[in-house]
């Protein structure tokens, strides 16, 4: 039995060392927003759907606030946000942190394109 266990453990160890996941492992439905950000010297924005849907139903942003359901189709500018449109409807230092906390949203890896990211299902067949 011992003779079996130690190679088994060694195998597990090897696997742990070398079989780390390589693909993007973003949370299901994370959106990278990078239409403007990097052009203007900021990191891309990461919008986590999972965090927001715990606190707001889809309809709040996608009906009341007018976010179109297609990553990249909303021309969000910092002017909009500061004037209370799009993200700025909540990110106003009242419901959520104010836009002065630049790097809490602008926290994405440089070079990422705008789009929906996530587990293998998210980037599965189709245009995601």
């Amino acid at each position: 039995m011992k003779r079996l266990v130690s190679p088994l453990l060694a195998g597990c160890l090897l696997a742990g060392l070398f079989l780390q996941p390589v693909a993007l492992r973003a949370e299901y439905g994370d959106v990278v927003i990078n239409r403007q950000a990097e052009k203007n010297g900021m990191r891309p924005v990461v919008f986590p759907h999972w965090f927001h849907r715990i606190r707001f139903r889809c309809k709040v942003c996608h009906a009341e606030l007018g976010f179109k359901m297609r990553a990249g189709s909303n021309p969000i500018t910092m002017t909009d946000i500061i004037e209370g449109r799009f993200c700025g409807a909540c990110h106003n230092n009242d419901i959520a942190w104010s836009p002065e906390n630049c790097d809490l949203c602008h926290s994405g890896k440089p070079g990422l394109p705008t789009g929906v990211f996530g587990g293998h299902e998210t980037s599965g067949p189709g245009r995601w």
Binding site: P7, E27, D30
Partner: peptide
């Protein structure tokens, strides 16, 4: 063992990586 380890680490890694390791 490699296979088992891979499956285990895959299962664990499949669940909610910390933000710093999520790749985005």
């Amino acid at each position: 063992g490699v296979l088992l380890g891979g499956v285990i680490s895959g299962a664990v890694a499949g669940e909610w990586l910390p933000l710093a390791k999520d790749g985005i």
